[in-house]
Design a protein around this nucleic acid. Structure first.
Lengths: 236, 236
DNA sequence: TCTGGTGTTTGCGGTAGCGCAAAACGGGCC
DNA sequence: GGCCCGTTTTGCGCTACCGCAAACACCAGA
């Protein structure tokens, strides 16, 4: 069993209100695991045998249709939990999780959850908070997809990524894990072609700088303006 | 304080694993309230002072953009909770709730939640389950909006409503609360015009029968087929 | 250094669905 | 019964975006 430094995770929202001793006990139930870039952590539809806390790296959660199309549910940043199928009482994972960067995770067996929750009710309360926040974000995303056009949705998506996983540069913010046009398309409900066209446009205006699996927001402020302007005040 | 018959609510998922005595104690903290059709229960952005359990009627939760567009987050059926802003640690309601039919609700002050959860941890666990399920439904909706076209999305939306709040008829299923074209548009990310056109088409094929704020699915089975067929096998 | 493969760019139609506008409908209320 | 108002229907043009296809760039590995 891996020894985990409690000080690294003690401040996480998941463990709010949990005493150091309790935290130690919780962590003793976990093991840690490493996933290299582009390896699957679990597959949609598979038995939900574990749940996870990401320590290092980045994980992409995606949902696939029967016909093979995918959407990105979210990108998981270090410190966040994922694979919480048991939270919704599901026996199978509703999405596929894949490491987009070399990643390190803590892994608990799903079977440990009921016991942990019983001993440490704060875990349930904290998880409820997390899931509730995600639900709200999800609604915001639906709202955007319903009311905004593609360019604004892409702007929002990139700004969110920058906020969650942005690396500050001298001039601009870089999204610090590999992400392609197709991924952005799957976050915003469009196609990689359209994403490419729009990013090209932005690039020629100096708003972004991008390449293979790489995006830098050079003018985050101007992108915020793009994101917030509504359909008709485009050419003001 | 209203006396509530515990037997009416004891079987609800929210109260799973809660003893009758505990249930009684929980209900003592609530009052009941009546909202006539088309009255607001709470407004988006208002102080989240209460949370609710719907006993009778139907409630529409909708989110509004700064520019005034709306989407329907969900329709609440009897037995479901809503207005759980505290679950996500939010001080304000993220959406507007409105009774679409004369409705009766149980109301708890938000301030009672922490105490209840502490005394009855099962409440948090059950709520986590509920919120988790909603999150998953939300993801499904995003998936649909990303990959399906309007006709299929409307088919799915109506089938979901029929399942949740359908009244069985001799021949077909009626959605048993008032719902207009605009509402369906706001559930599916389209316009009332397009909804109207599609329902007209279906009506001429005998799939549905509809009128002012009223929809009957006459051939649910055929609508399922519509919902499941993908873009290119339309004219097979 | 060359070479294969994956990711990206760009052009060019085609079209699903939007937006506006106007008419028809229908139900409630006096 | 007749009037008024909110809902629904339908026509018509338009455009944002998709879908296909081909060229292009870049990285990894031989």
């Amino acid at each position: 069993m891996a020894k985990v430094d409690t000080s690294l995770v003690a401040h996480l929202p998941l463990f709010a209100g949990v005493t150091p001793e309790a935290l130690d006990e919780i962590l003793r139930e976990a093991r840690s695991a490493r996933f290299p870039r582009n390896s699957a952590i679990f597959e949609q539809g598979a038995d939900a045998q574990s749940f996870f806390l990401l320590l290092h790296g980045h994980v992409r959660a995606a949902k696939t249709t029967p016909t093979g199309e995918q959407i990105v549910v979210r990108y998981v940043a270090p410190g966040e939990t994922f694979g919480l199928a048991m939270a919704i009482g599901a026996a199978r994972y509703p999405a596929t999780a894949m490491a987009v960067d070399d990643s390190v995770v803590l892994v608990w067996p799903t079977s440990a959850w009921p016991r942990l929750v019983e001993r440490f009710p704060a875990l349930a309360a904290n998880t409820l908070q997390t899931v509730g926040t995600r639900l709200q974000e999800s609604h915001t995303r639906i709202l955007e997809m319903s009311t905004q056009q593609v360019e604004q949705r892409i702007a929002h998506a990139l700004l969110r990524l920058a906020k969650q996983s942005g690396k500050k540069l001298d001039h601009g913010i870089e999204i610090d894990f590999p992400i392609g046009r197709q991924d952005i398309a799957q976050m915003t409900g469009t196609t990689l072609h359209t994403v490419s066209r729009i990013l090209s446009g932005w690039e020629s205006q100096g708003l972004v700088e991008s390449g293979r699996q790489r995006i830098i927001l050079r003018e985050p402020h101007k992108i915020v303006v793009l994101a917030e302007r509504n359909a008709d005040n485009g050419a003001a």
